[in-house]
Simulated assay, not measured.
Amino acid sequence: MLNRLFLSAGTWTALGLASGLYWREMTKINEFTGDTMLSGAHTHALALGTLVFLAVLALAKVFPIAEKSAKLFTILYNTGLAFTFGSMVVKGTLQVLELDIATSAMWPGFAGLGHMLLTGTWVYFFLILRKALKVDAAQARDAATVGA
């Protein structure tokens, strides 16, 4: 479980850094000076990917989070973030290339699906964490009772 969380954090770090480089080079090569979704893609990957997975990793190390629950959280969260991040990169690229399809309503739709999945996954994570806190408190009570 911890390794899966660590690998997710590392992957989103690489994607975040690569997309920042891609944004800079793509706009420079195409002499694009306007606003584009590419400008926020790398911060989404780094903040919502790297930082979130490192925080969840720390919580999983401290609290008894169930393996099965953590696996499902990781799959759902990565999927939601991939939808959000992917739609930003594709739409941003189309904006830089100044293609008409960049204004299509499907891009906010994909990003919206990703955000909805992320929101649902956050709710799920809070339920997982609440359960782990209860288990941790029960274990502490049991340890205190045995030691008395």
Rank of each mutant, 00 (worst) to 15 (best):
1 M>R: 04
1 M>V: 05
1 M>D: 11
2 L>V: 07
2 L>I: 13
4 R>N: 14
5 L>S: 14
5 L>K: 09
10 G>Y: 01
11 T>G: 10
11 T>M: 06
11 T>E: 02
11 T>W: 01
11 T>L: 09
12 W>H: 13
12 W>Q: 09
15 L>M: 04
15 L>I: 14
17 L>P: 09
19 S>F: 03
20 G>L: 08
21 L>P: 04
21 L>D: 04
23 W>T: 07
24 R>V: 05
25 E>D: 09
26 M>K: 05
26 M>V: 02
29 I>F: 07
30 N>S: 12
33 T>S: 13
35 D>K: 12
35 D>W: 04
36 T>N: 08
36 T>C: 03
37 M>Q: 13
38 L>S: 15
38 L>Y: 03
39 S>T: 12
40 G>F: 02
40 G>D: 08
41 A>W: 02
41 A>C: 14
42 H>C: 05
43 T>R: 15
44 H>N: 14
48 L>N: 06
48 L>F: 08
50 T>Q: 09
51 L>I: 08
51 L>P: 00
51 L>A: 13
52 V>P: 00
53 F>H: 12
53 F>S: 13
55 A>T: 02
59 L>F: 03
59 L>K: 07
59 L>S: 07
59 L>C: 11
59 L>Y: 00
59 L>T: 04
60 A>R: 02
61 K>W: 13
61 K>A: 12
63 F>T: 07
63 F>I: 00
64 P>K: 15
65 I>S: 08
65 I>M: 15
65 I>P: 01
66 A>L: 14
67 E>Q: 14
69 S>H: 14
69 S>P: 00
70 A>T: 15
70 A>D: 05
70 A>M: 09
72 L>P: 07
75 I>T: 13
76 L>Q: 13
76 L>S: 13
79 T>L: 13
80 G>N: 08
80 G>Y: 00
81 L>Y: 05
81 L>E: 10
82 A>C: 08
84 T>N: 11
85 F>P: 03
85 F>D: 11
86 G>P: 05
86 G>H: 05
86 G>R: 00
87 S>E: 08
87 S>W: 00
88 M>L: 15
90 V>W: 00
91 K>D: 09
95 Q>D: 01
95 Q>A: 04
96 V>I: 02
96 V>L: 02
97 L>G: 05
98 E>V: 03
98 E>M: 02
101 I>T: 10
101 I>D: 00
103 T>K: 09
105 A>E: 15
107 W>E: 08
107 W>D: 11
107 W>Q: 05
110 F>T: 07
112 G>I: 01
113 L>P: 00
113 L>A: 15
115 H>D: 08
118 L>I: 02
120 G>W: 02
121 T>Q: 06
121 T>I: 06
125 F>Q: 03
127 L>P: 04
128 I>F: 01
130 R>P: 01
130 R>Y: 11
131 K>C: 02
131 K>N: 09
132 A>Y: 03
133 L>A: 05
136 D>F: 14
136 D>L: 07
136 D>E: 15
137 A>Q: 11
138 A>P: 00
142 D>K: 14
143 A>Y: 11
143 A>E: 11
145 T>C: 04
145 T>M: 14
145 T>F: 11
145 T>A: 15
146 V>R: 15
147 G>A: 15
